[in-house]
């Protein structure tokens, strides 16, 4: 009798234990996250019948577009991050004032980031053709005439007539259009919070504005910036969709573009699936490595600064 009671009691205790609330999450991540990750790593190192092999990765390294895909991905991530970060800081410093309509301004700045990537693809697809809106804009604003008389342009620009790194840069610019405004408002928000402290500090120490920015502002707003940059970096390494919408598959390869290519463009054969899995595991590896390096690099500097103090 009492034994049964203790059994019931302990069941009750287990059911009522706070850990039970974590169980669904645990199950979820086991089934939908850990399992696929482990599975893809396993599959990338085995053949179809399960014997271990490195052949999948050898095939991947030998794939004609592998090197370009890797280089393009890294170039895109690094260049877009750097460009967006510095442009955003520059703009934020220039605009760092309270002005009439600043709320409305912030409102507009959020728009590009809210746009679904597929829509951004359509937007720039209509823009970059020879008779597209970008050339139209150049034309109606007179910019075309100015640039032509300076000898910079000769007739309408063929924006998509680019290959290699220049094609990557085209996508970097589109990405910058999408992301820059919101990077800027984050920095702006940080700046305006600390504006008063900045000017006080600058007055006290008699420092130049540039020095004050470097020594005071950046360290203060750094933590939130670092997280944001990390997220941007990870997102940058996942570029492919807009590029495919502008240039199509294969012309400007990226790592994930290759994954999608082997998963959904070519026939679904075992060989193609192994190729997709290998690319996908490799992409994951690249993302984790770069993210790790980034965290080490930034937190390392922070420690160094502390030690200096």
């Amino acid at each position: 009798m009492s034994k049964r009671k203790t059994v019931i009691h302990s069941i009750k205790r287990i059911v009522k234990s706070p850990y039970m609330l974590l169980l669904p999450a645990l199950l979820f991540y086991l089934l939908f996250w850990l399992l696929p990750v482990v599975m893809s790593i396993f599959q990338s190192f085995t053949t179809v019948d399960g014997t271990p092999t490195l052949q999948n990765f050898i095939n991947m390294f030998n794939e004609s577009r592998f090197m370009r895909a890797l280089i393009n991905t890294l170039v895109f991530a690094v260049v877009s991050l750097t460009l967006q970060f510095f442009l955003a800081i520059l703009l934020a410093l220039l605009i760092n004032k309270k002005f009439k309509g600043s709320r409305l301004f912030l409102f507009f700045m959020i728009i590009p980031m809210a746009l679904p990537q597929a829509a951004v693809g359509i937007l720039w697809n209509t823009g970059l053709t020879e008779a597209g809106w970008l050339n139209s804009l150049f034309h109606v604003t007179g910019l075309q005439t100015v640039l032509e008389s300076l000898g910079v342009l000769d007739g309408r620009t063929l924006w998509t007539n680019v290959t290699g790194t220049r094609a990557v840069m085209t996508i970097v610019l589109i990405d910058t259009w999408t992301v820059l405004p919101s990077v800027m408002i984050i920095i702006l928000a940080g700046l305006q919070n600390f504006n008063r402290e900045l000017s006080e500090a600058a007055q006290v120490f008699g420092a130049s504005r540039g020095r004050a920015v470097k020594d005071i502002v950046i360290p203060i707003i750094k933590p939130s910036i670092v997280t944001a940059l990390l997220l941007r970096l990870i997102a940058g390494l996942q570029v492919w969709l807009i590029s495919v919408m502008i240039f199509g598959y294969g012309r400007v390869p990226y790592l994930l573009e290759r994954v999608v290519y082997y998963m959904s463009v070519v026939a679904r054969t075992d060989a193609n699936y192994r190729m997709a899995v290998s690319y996908s595991v490799f992409t994951l590896f690249v993302i984790l490595t770069v993210a790790f390096l980034f965290v080490r690099l930034t937190s390392g500097k922070t420690e160094w600064r502390k030690a200096d103090e």
């Binding site: 053709t129 020879e130 008779a131 063929l158 998509t160 007539n161 502008i246 240039f247 199509g248 012309r251």
Partner: peptide, 16 residues
């Protein structure tokens, strides 16, 4: 036309 390489068919380019 260099944009030939982005287009599956000539319709869009002929149209504009």
């Amino acid at each position: 036309h260099p944009e030939s390489i982005n287009n599956a068919a000539g319709e869009g380019l002929l149209l504009d």
